[in-house]
Design a protein around this nucleic acid. Sequence first.
DNA 1: TCGGTATGTTGACAGTGTTAACTGAGCGAT
DNA 2: ATCGCTCAGTTAACACTGTCAACATACCGA
Lengths: 196, 196
Amino acid sequence: MKETATRSKKQTYHHGDLRSALIATGLKLLETKAGGEIGLREVARETGVSATAVYRHFPDKDALMAALVDAGFDKLADAQEAAAVPHEARDARFRAIGQAYVHFALAHPALFRVMTGYMHLSGTCEDGEVVGDNRAGRLLKDNIAALLPDAGKLEREVATIQSLALVHGLAQLVLAGQVPNDPALIDAVVDRFGDW
Amino acid sequence: MKETATRSKKQTYHHGDLRSALIATGLKLLETKAGGEIGLREVARETGVSATAVYRHFPDKDALMAALVDAGFDKLADAQEAAAVPHEARDARFRAIGQAYVHFALAHPALFRVMTGYMHLSGTCEDGEVVGDNRAGRLLKDNIAALLPDAGKLEREVATIQSLALVHGLAQLVLAGQVPNDPALIDAVVDRFGDW
DNA sequence: TCGGTATGTTGACAGTGTTAACTGAGCGAT
DNA sequence: ATCGCTCAGTTAACACTGTCAACATACCGA
């Protein structure tokens, strides 16, 4: 086809890396359509490809959704790292990471809903490890370790889970309309992030 | 029909309070089918009624789901009140309520998933009030007020949101497989519930 | 050059939410 | 007591979804 010039690399086949294209349009659809679900056929249609072509790259709709979840957590990690940069003190960096979690969820509500709704089939915690092994999870655990250098393993795990549960629950409650979307209030709640 | 004898009251019409029957079978289905979604037609079929009969009592599938959310929060309030009974001290009662939240979610995973997935269209917080006005929400706010008698309104709101976000996020993370389902670990995290 | 396989296509099937048109039970007014 | 209206249910159909089977074709190595 004629888009051979637009694609830079991996341009190996018919479409040239359709898998990444599907994920990209999925993310774009989740940015545009603020509310509601997303469909396998819809993603395929918007990518300009037949619906069943998706099955050459994902066994299920669930697998496609899981890939979107992974992509979402990657974007979240980007936002968190960017938010941490301007701060020097370790606790300030930590709080910035927590704020970034909630702000990301409020800025991308549809994507975050997919992330929470399909989280269970993407990177579950293996072998007793706490929180999934994506970049966002590692970022959190690394910061906890830097913040509690003298703590034992269990203590760090508890701190990790508490922090994550706080921001995750807060984001979801605000998105669900159970907590008013008041930045000052949200900041006040997240300021508890990292108090031990 | 012949089930006139089985129904005690409200037996006014063809089915006799079909609305409640639909909610009841919806809850039953959510207990039985541990994972996955629930369907309008499925609920109708299991109730022994035509699919379109649902539309005489609910404008949407969303409305039916919202009713299930309300019913779920009512059952949650029951569990929380029962869990609070044996404790005397106010902080112990408070922690028991928090534990009950997580345990309820883990005991009824499909129902809890529906509750979180459709929470946004059932009892959103009106006029700046914090958390929805169901029994579970009032129970939490009353206990916060008893626990922080000298606190200002904003301080109580922040405490309410922090508590709710902690247990809600924890429950969801465990259900999503991001946190191991270890009762001791969960108890350790929830023990932070109500520390100020 | 040729055969095989990776990557796409069309067509079909079961199942979903939703609407329109229809039927009949129950109750109030005459 | 009967008429008529409205409530509460039905069947039929539509557009849509996820998924499978069968088919077509572009690429790549022998």
